[in-house]
Nucleic acid binder design. Sequence first.
DNA 1: CATGAATGAGACTTCATTCAT
DNA 2: TATGAATGAAGTCTCATTCAT
Lengths: 222, 222, 222, 222
Amino acid sequence: MPSLVTAPPRHRRKESRPQELLDAALALFVEKGFAATRSEEVAARAGVSKGTLYLYFPSKAELFKAVVRGNLSALIAQGQQLAEQFEGPSALLLHQLMHTWWQRVGSTPAGGIFKIIVAEVRNFPELAQFYRDEVVIPAHRVVARTLQRGIERGEFRAVPVNETTHTLIAPMLFLALHRHSIGACAAMQPELDPAALIDAQFDLMLNGLQPRATRAARRNVA
Amino acid sequence: MPSLVTAPPRHRRKESRPQELLDAALALFVEKGFAATRSEEVAARAGVSKGTLYLYFPSKAELFKAVVRGNLSALIAQGQQLAEQFEGPSALLLHQLMHTWWQRVGSTPAGGIFKIIVAEVRNFPELAQFYRDEVVIPAHRVVARTLQRGIERGEFRAVPVNETTHTLIAPMLFLALHRHSIGACAAMQPELDPAALIDAQFDLMLNGLQPRATRAARRNVA
Amino acid sequence: MPSLVTAPPRHRRKESRPQELLDAALALFVEKGFAATRSEEVAARAGVSKGTLYLYFPSKAELFKAVVRGNLSALIAQGQQLAEQFEGPSALLLHQLMHTWWQRVGSTPAGGIFKIIVAEVRNFPELAQFYRDEVVIPAHRVVARTLQRGIERGEFRAVPVNETTHTLIAPMLFLALHRHSIGACAAMQPELDPAALIDAQFDLMLNGLQPRATRAARRNVA
Amino acid sequence: MPSLVTAPPRHRRKESRPQELLDAALALFVEKGFAATRSEEVAARAGVSKGTLYLYFPSKAELFKAVVRGNLSALIAQGQQLAEQFEGPSALLLHQLMHTWWQRVGSTPAGGIFKIIVAEVRNFPELAQFYRDEVVIPAHRVVARTLQRGIERGEFRAVPVNETTHTLIAPMLFLALHRHSIGACAAMQPELDPAALIDAQFDLMLNGLQPRATRAARRNVA
DNA sequence: CATGAATGAGACTTCATTCAT
DNA sequence: TATGAATGAAGTCTCATTCAT
């Protein structure tokens, strides 16, 4: 357990140790899962010894939770950044949200955190609340508000907001999940291009969302 | 060396044992993951002793593979059975595929298999190959053919088939995944109704798929 | 445990079961050793089921001891048969003892019993006394008496009888041991011919045993 | 999960651990055989815990091989060292080889290795190859060359070298075997003196090897 | 602060033995 | 008698965690 007293700044470069350990742990937990990842591997990948890991994290489970929490916070930060200050057609906002999320989250190592959550929440129930508060609710809110905005501005027809939000989010998360499980295995068919998938999805959704009258006019936003 | 205390009663049930063990294993693997499930737990849940498990499955990994194999083969059979010998509008077929899948797989314990696959497939390379050949490809084919059928019959507009197939399948799988991970945790917001989600998704999709002219007429198939 | 009461002779052919089990056990114990031999294998080789084995022998250890005892008695019977009623030169007797022993014991499955004894006496101390009484002492006596006879008749020089007896017996036993350990492994150099070895040994010994004066005359007994 | 009770003291002795473990393993393997020796017993006898054993040897089988390798390589070195750079009568060399081998190997715990080999080699085919290459062949060569040397120098008569080599080696190995099997059991008759046995054997052999003419003159080398 | 040797609980698996049929 | 499904003690090995250096 790290000392709670302010340490004298003797080892300047040692201060990045916890983050290096968290990064190493994220990569390994994503690749192999919690149980199959050995503490010593995490330490080795971070360039320190087994003992040092326990200087910063009291147990493997705590390290795991720190990894999830840390990456969840990063995730929500990304999300908020994406949603701020947009003016223009809701369809364009939706399109940008999707592409930017994939670019900044889904396709980065942070995208692996979803696999971890899916695989291990039931073994670490304390993470559930955390995940709900930090990711599910904010992300849902951003998309739901965009939908609502589109409906209110007459850009979308009056779909049920909650359910449609789920339908919009699911394929994106699924894409991220896929990248780190089946998609990561060799001998799989040549994987589909994520960007093409997102476009196809967006096209499908957008057409479905548009009221009949304005549909033809707006179909070429993407 | 045999125990001197009275042994527990024994029951001979060779025929039914394998399925009981597979059911127990499915439930536990879904709940805790492969690595975190102990062989003895599986045996205990099936009402037998540790040794009996190994009478039917040579190792925990083989048990795992048998679970996946057994449940997924049934799943594939369901889908193909439904798609062949279907006469009627493609939208209706799509709707029935979705609801039947949810009824027979997604909402049953077998739906948890996707969570296992996502979580563990990277640790079992041979399973990846199996899963691709036995599940991914056939399932993809069923949906893709239905789409193709709809396009050819002029019921759907000419969307890119592969990408759209992914977009149709992903939310269903995601729903199953969700049920067995975050959705299984207490302290989550009251879960959305799966049927409502599927309907919303179907409505969204269907509208997106319809060519402009016939759209108004067909919107009330669901 | 077999019943001690005289059983009605209902199953005529079943009466050979114990011996079939003992034979199967001998072969497997010789091949793999006590610990590495599985009870079920013994039963299978004898053509019966696991449970039947325990009808005749209360435990694997008892089966093992029965195997050793049974084959030791056979061994000593062989030995006595060899030694009886011989008239003629002691060298010839020695020569016949050696060859006949190899022919009737060393080269037969019974020869494997020596490997078992060597490998396991220390784990089954009760066998030690048995082996000494049934094999070591009688065998030693036969050879020692032959030596003594030769010395008394002036055929051999006055060697120390006990030690020389050991030197005469050891290579024969070693040959039998070898056959069932290193000699039984593939990838060994083409094994030496046992008969040639015995002859070489006999020639060496005999020449060593002869007093100087009579040596040339007797060298061609073999 | 760590025990809550006070842990036993730890000693760091990385350098000496492997040899201590090898010694413990040798003693136990010789006493009980490979299969009947438990890993934990070996560790306990070396004064360490189960886990420590596996820090130095990746498996019980590898530990076994290390034991054989370590002890037999030393043995081989001794023999070759003695045979090369020896000047003097071949009978004396033979006599020294025998006594040195007994002193350095046969009478030490390493002598028990032959019992392990005899008992277990058929269960470890790779060990058979190793043992042949590292032990059987070099040892045979040393003795065979000495015989050849004696024959060429006219000290011995022209016996068949291979077979006679076997006859010379066998009683020594048998003596070692005996010491660690039957000879190690209580209730055996007072064991013969090994030195007396070796001398008797040597005397017997030597006289047998001598050509008639020089025999009387050379008999007192020992 | 950092190291890595040491520990021991616990996981998987085997197999001698039992006993209902 | 004979069977073989079932049991569970015990063995091998792993790895999270500790602690002397």
